[in-house]
Write a protein that binds this DNA or RNA. Structure first.
Length: 820
RNA sequence: GGGGCGGUGGCGGAAUUGGCAGACGCUGCGGACUUAAAAUCCGCCGGUGGUGACACCGUGAGGGUUCGACCCCCUCUCGCCCCACCA
């Protein structure tokens, strides 16, 4: 008997599995397919424990699925474009490409230590020309179908990274850059957008998808659908404004239109200058300047007291022809709705606060049930929407619930407005003034405007010889020759787009490239697509709920409508892992010094112990703090497993009862472990295997070794162990037990329900809901038998003290409760 | 302000979903082996009282439903995360 030395067996098996192509996944129509996809890593240079936590449980589950007869595709790749490469390059003076590919190589070596079942032939790197050629191709398809367009737009700009940021990449209350933390500023640039908003409604539906509630809620809120009405106001002629202007607003409360006593425009609203009367010009200009200079921190703080100024202008309320003042205030945002609101202070708290501060009229139009008639002049706050309409022209007397639709009907009839829907979701800004990304394959010609590069000329290669230092301009723009080309339409000299694409574009379709990473007739081989898609289970971090996971859904739906993909959704099932914290319960970070490095752990305990601890120490979707003594526990367990299999197994004398108990425990464990693998409850897989091992030690003590029941236990144990601990399972299976290579191509055992059944069951007996005794009855005992056994219990009789029970509840085979 | 998740021993967590609370592991304590240490093995380990059998209390707090509640309902509270003046 030798000791368990993982370092001696793990590299051996990793090399053999790879040499044998054990994990190659190819189309095989005789088996059902299973596409298990993990969010691909960014090649930051080091595989940390969080990567392992994200990747090991899905690997174990993919292995489990394979043993269940599925043809499992389990690929890996790298999201290789992006800012960190440039930031690192600037810091170290190495080329982003060199930095990135060096990191990829290092991380691949680290990944091999994990012993995962990746099909290494399918590795995909988004910065490879053979990959981004097709990213560019997709861009052109979107452009050709009117889903990509250019727009001048105020964008968030990070002065540190010298790049624009998507709304989703601006973080925190202080609105800082996702990457470097610098507060963002606004800048006007003409850029490329994708029409994600066209799919807003469809993205709200999760029909047929098994996605966590949390993610669905996040996406729903992010898309932010509001139903209401757009209402057309006219401004009253005043000052230079001789004719009046059309002023459209969006409201979710058209029913309160009769209570609108003023209007508020965003300071940036284009009508502000036209409406402002000469005597208010100075004040308005000062406020606008203040609002513009103000950082978004101040502007978006909800607890801030509302401010604003009167423009001197008036608008006409279309429903009652009243003249109401027009104000500007920074609590109205130019980026939502039309940048203008009708203010109904009696029924909106924000408007109420504003009205009270500036002495504006508050007019009640909904009288809540059972309250004294409200007086706008004295009411202490706005009131909500249920009650009866008052002061509301034709709506007066209707209930507020009906008034919403009645008001829209009224507006539509009078042609003053119509029902409308608004979204918080914006179109996806994909332009980046950066070097390390996929070039946008577009050409600008003075005569023919913007046209795509002909598809047979793709990829538009990213030149290696650029100064990638941040200059405020795209480095590609500064390249002496790169941008010079000819117009694909007229052949005259023209200029390339020098911006590159948001890397979320690259990661929106990588799951398709895995299908055929070297295919050159298209982004993917349709035969592979037909077999493997859609993704059956997608795993990754919750942080991508509103970015990547919306983009990739949009991308798939857009491709479906362009005839490129099929089906409505790319990923059927989604599961998110939690986070591994440091031993101090804080997020792991180098600066805090609480990082556990997987390479060192593997060196010390072996990959199998690290793998099993990672699945054991927390519920996978919750995460938990790391513990260096905790991993000693799983390492100890594997040593005990090793000793169990390699220890003395000479047949002894053994009772039938021992053998039966062993089989029972084996099949009960199998039932429970099967359930847990199915449901991503990996932590209890390990505890189940630990319990069974303890039971097997007891059985061996009782002489079970060498019996057929013992052999069965060993066999099933290794099959259950193999997904989490592939190396030790293979060694014990192939070498120690001498069974045919490989344990990983074995089938998942079937539960023998007869063996798993108990002959006798122990039933707790309660008196008045308190546990007083336990009785042992035959498993097939009926209710009457259980009842009389419970009543016969001495302890129960003691508590009954001679009295007859009022009621006896027998919960089928689970519990007896005697009520006195 | 809105939404989500969560609160179970010293710690991570079990409890197959309304039926024995604390599985499994870590830590700690006691013991065996050893010249000693490591490793390994055995035992104890929610609280209070009791030598003990046992009794009482106990899943953030309070209430409710139920024969029975960690689980369902209501009120509150604390922690984490997301969104946030969205008209």
């Amino acid at each position: 008997m030798s000791d368990y030395i993982p370092q001696g067996i793990e590299p051996k098996w990793q090399a053999k599995w790879e040499a044998d192509g054990l994990y190659h996944a190819d189309i095989d129509k005789s088996r059902p397919k299973h596409y298990a996809l993990m969010m691909l890593p960014y090649p930051s240079g080091d595989l940390h424990i969080g990567h392992w936590y994200a990747y090991i449980p899905p690997d174990a589950r993919a292995r489990y699925m394979r043993m269940n007869g599925y043809n499992v595709l389990f690929p890996i790749g790298f999201d290789a474009f992006g800012l960190p490469a440039e930031n690192a390059a600037i810091k170290r003076g190495t080329h982003p490409k060199e930095w990135t590919y060096k990191n990829i190589e290092k991380m691949q070596q680290q990944m091999r230590l994990m012993g995962s079942m990746y099909d290494w032939r399918r590795v995909t790197v988004s910065a490879d020309p053979e990959y981004y050629q097709w990213t560019q191709w997709f861009f052109i398809q979107l452009f050709k179908h009117g889903l990509a367009y250019r727009k001048m737009s105020p964008v968030d700009f990070c002065p540190q990274c010298n790049t624009t940021l998507a709304r989703e990449q601006v973080w925190g209350e202080d609105r800082h850059c996702e990457r470097c933390g610098t507060p963002v500023i606004k800048k006007d640039l003409e850029q490329w957008f994708f029409r994600t908003t066209r799919y807003a409604d469809e993205l709200l539906s999760f029909a047929g998808m098994d996605w966590p509630e949390r993610v669905r809620v996040l996406q729903t809120n992010w898309i932010g659908r509001s139903e209401g009405a757009s209402v057309t106001f006219k401004t009253a002629p005043s000052g230079d404004d001789k004719t009046g202007h059309v002023l459209e607003v969006f409201t979710t409360r058209p029913d309160t239109l009769w209570g609108a006593t003023f209007m508020v425009l965003a300071p940036e609203h284009p009508l502000v200058n036209k409406l402002t009367t000469p005597e208010h010009r100075k004040e308005v200009a000062a406020y606008k300047k203040l609002a513009a200079r103000q950082s978004d921190i101040d502007r978006e703080a909800t607890d801030k007291e509302k401010t604003g100024v009167f423009t001197g202008g008036f608008a006409i309320n279309p429903v009652n022809a009243e003249k109401i003042p027009v104000w500007i205030a920074d609590y109205v945002l130019m980026t939502y709705g039309t940048g203008a609101i009708m203010a109904v202070p009696a029924h909106d708290q924000r408007d109420f606060e504003f009205a009270r501060k500036y002495g504006l009229e508050v007019r009640v139009v909904i009288q809540p049930e059972g309250l004294e008639p409200l007086d706008g002049a004295t009411m202490p706050g706005s009131v909500p929407a249920s009650g009866t309409m008052v002061n509301s022209g034709p709506l007066t007397g209707t209930s507020a619930d009906e008034a919403f639709h009645a008001a829209i009907k009224f507006l539509e009839k009078k042609k003053l407005g119509k029902g409308a829907v608004n979204y918080k979701l914006r179109d996806w800004l994909i332009s980046r003034q950066r070097y390390w990304g996929a070039p946008i394959p577009m050409v600008y010609c003075q005569k023919d405007g913007w046209n795509p590069i002909p598809e047979d000329q793709l990829p538009v290669l990213l030149p290696d010889d650029v100064a990638w230092k941040p200059t405020g301009e795209s480095p590609l723009k500064l390249h002496p020759t790169w941008k010079n080309t000819t117009c694909p339409v007229c052949g005259q000299p023209a200029e390339r787009e020098t911006d590159t694409m948001d890397t979320f574009m690259c990661s929106s379709w990588y799951h398709l490239r895995y299908l055929s990473p070297h295919y050159h007739k298209g982004p993917f081989d349709p035969r592979e697509y037909d077999y493997w898609m859609p993704v059956d289970v997608y795993t990754g971090g919750i942080e991508h709920a509103t970015m990547h996971l919306i983009y990739t859904r949009f991308f798939h739906k857009a491709c479906r409508d362009m005839g490129i993909t099929r089906g409505d959704e790319p990923m059927i099932q989604l599961r998110n892992q939690g986070m591994v914290l440091g031993e101090d319960h804080e997020k792991m970070s180098k600066s805090k010094g609480n990082v556990s490095a997987p390479d060192e752990l593997v060196k010390r305990y072996g990959a199998d112990a690290v793998r099993s601890y990672l699945v054991f120490f927390a519920k996978w979707d919750m995460g938990a703090p790391w513990s260096h003594t905790g991993i000693e526990g799983t390492f100890r367990w594997l040593k005990r497993v090793w000793a169990l299999f390699t220890g003395p197994s000479a047949p002894g004398s053994c009772s039938a009862e021992t053998k039966q108990n062993l089989r029972r425990k084996v099949h009960q464990t199998l039932r429970h472990v099967t359930h847990d693998y199915e449901n991503f409850e990996f932590n209890t897989v390990i505890s189940g295997l630990m319990e069974l091992m303890n039971e097997m030690y007891t059985a061996r003590q009782a002489g079970a070794a060498g019996t057929p029941e013992w052999q069965e236990a060993l066999d099933i144990y290794l099959r259950m162990l193999a997904p989490v601990c592939p190396h030790i399972a293979e060694e014990l299976w192939t070498v120690v037990l001498g069974k045919p290579y490989s344990v990983h191509t074995q089938s998942w055992p079937a539960v023998d329900e007869v063996a798993a059944r108990e002959d006798e069951i122990t039933i707790p007996v309660q008196v008045n809901g308190k546990l007083r005794d336990r009785i042992v009855v035959p498993a097939e005992a009926g209710e009457d038998q259980i009842r009389s056994a419970a009543l016969a219990s001495e302890t129960v009789q003691k508590f009954l003290a001679g009295k007859a029970p009022r009621k006896v509840i027998v919960a089928q085979k689970k519990l007896v409760n005697i009520v006195i």
